[in-house]
Design a protein around this nucleic acid. Structure first.
Lengths: 205, 205, 205, 205
DNA sequence: CATGAATGAGCATTCATTCAT
DNA sequence: TATGAATGAATGCTCATTCAT
């Protein structure tokens, strides 16, 4: 291993060390309580050091978000591998996201943070990092649908658009969770989610 | 007009004056830059005075959000009154929300802010205030669908659930706007929205 | 009853109404959370009205303190009336103060507040108001001692000085309560108090 | 001197610089007027810098208090070293405290502040810091008494309790200073103090 | 590479008091 | 008498970022 490679490796190790600290804070106290100095403290590094490895706080958040998306992606991957029909796959993917929003609330929050904050605009290169991750999930859905269409068990002219609509619907509904007791008039949020998923799937049968 | 009434009126005027200031800040610099002292400054009032009229910052935000929802509501109401068929109504309502998210971006942001922030939690009575507004929109959609079903031009067993799914889909998709260039692989966001709305409406034909 | 008298009576009633509110706040949330506007709110009066009946916040505190001292005084009076010997009386008075510091902690705190705050200096006429109350307690002790001396069961040349020392000792020791676990090395605070009272009484036998 | 040592030294210097500022404010305007921003101003540092060296305002007060106690301790230590008898030592210690309360009024106030405020509650580790200081004074008194007992010139079964009572009496009486003109009926506060000290000492002869 | 000291604007909120009506 | 609107200084504290060493 050359010097360059070792350096690069060490750099990656440090980056992970910092991310570990940030994640630990995210999970112990939520997104709002993450500050650079707390991360530095947790990582047993100097504040300045953090800035050597990450341009700013946002970049750390991005990395964390990516982690979350990857986790979700891996969960979804488990489903795809299963020997079940297309509809079942879509249905399970949907509920996988539902579970994710509950069981991995902190990751869900951070994903949400970037999606809904009006002020945060990604710089092009950061953008790409997220692409790789978020993308893959949509592609899975699209591929399932496309495959179903090809096998004549599903009927949809534009699997790409459908996958985005599918995901958008899930995402939108998950945000309504906190309205359960008020605007939703005590509709069970889970049943609502279930209803919507069935509706979506039915629409491409 | 009695003294009491005049006082009450003046109080309302002041409350509006403060809201004007907050709204003006919201529109000029976005939600993240609103602080009480800036509001006070803008309204040409003392900081303490703000607290005389609003319990805290949240209450101001709530009022602002309510304004936004009411505005959206009134826009939707225009559509409902029109002499067009059920499908057309739903379609136009959807695009009304789309337009709202663009033309009234600041109001859309503030609604979003409350919906997606993991930390903000409404006190019960504040919650109710929003209920009244957000509720009404869902009810409109539900009523259109229910009416369509009754007239045998639409087919849906649970108009209530559908209305929430309908809105959730729109809301979720609008959040994807900023992913247009990346995750969405240059799908036109508007076309995507259009596609989804058609899909939704088709599903209850 | 003349107009003047009725006016004076009404004024007194209002003053009490305000004091009731202040006391209620004192007891529900402690001395630090008393503010004029809270008092006004509690008393269902305007803020300005409070200032009509009391010069300032301090004057209200003074009145509250007076109440506390009077309560303590009345408790002590019960003891004096009893048919017990001089020593027993002194001992019981001491424990009466001990109990008072625990059971009427809020009153004790407010008395303490005025006694230990370095900044608060009473204006002459306010001073007098407190005199009347605090005084009486010292006089009781002095009289017991003086009486004991006269009856040849106690031996003390200066009952006046002794009564002040007596009270000062009690007061000083009560302040040490919060040091129980640290500086006092786990000496039981109560036993310590007991020891001191016995020592004081022994010294004038 | 290594880098680490120099850094540590510099850190200590800064901490002192901040403490100097706080003490200067304490002496010029009293304890109630000390605020972090005033300290920062006086020390010619940014507000944030203060928080870099001290966790919070309380920690600064604690440091100040510790200073005061240490000063008092050193004054008392002078007395102990003298070649005078046990009674004389106790008597002089008492007057040392009296003098301290007058000549070092600000330090006395700060000690008092922590002892009598109902709301301030020390965090355990801060508590310990004070322990070390306050403790030592009580131990001196206890040792003098214990020594006197052993040499058969004093008579007291529990020197530990006595030392606390001794100190409590002094402390309580010092708080009565401001009552000199009213409740104390023009008893000279100093004579009163003198009387009490003699009484205390007599009680263990 | 790594550090950590320094910054100072910024935050939400409280408060005793005044005064025109 | 009684009101309550208005004040604005003051509070303790946080934070992302910089930069000299």
């Amino acid at each position: 291993m050359g010097v360059k490679e070792r350096k690069a490796l060490e750099k990656q190790i440090r980056r992970n060390q910092i991310l570990d600290a940030a994640r630990s804070l995210l999970f112990s106290s939520g997104i709002d309580s993450i500050s650079i100095s707390k991360i530095a403290n947790q990582a047993e590094l100097g504040v300045g050091t953090i800035y050597f490895y990450y341009k700013n706080k946002e970049e750390i958040f991005i990395a964390l978000q990516k982690e979350g998306v990857e986790l979700l992606y891996s969960m979804i991957l488990q489903i795809v591998k299963k020997d079940i029909n297309h509809e079942e796959k879509l249905s399970r993917i949907a509920f996988c996201y539902y579970r994710f929003s509950e069981e991995q609330k902190n990751y869900f929050d951070i994903i949400n943070y970037f999606l809904s904050s009006p002020t945060i605009y990604f710089e092009p290169d950061l953008k790409n990092k997220i692409d790789m991750s978020g993308h893959k999930i949509l592609r899975i859905i699209r591929d399932i649908v496309a495959d179903g269409v090809q096998q004549n068990v599903l009927n949809e002219q534009d699997p790409q658009k459908f996958s985005i609509m599918f995901w958008g619907t899930l995402h939108g509904l998950l945000q309504f969770k906190k309205l359960e007791k008020t605007v939703l008039e005590n509709e069970s949020h889970e049943k609502l989610f279930n209803y919507s998923v069935q509706k979506l799937i039915s629409s491409i049968k």
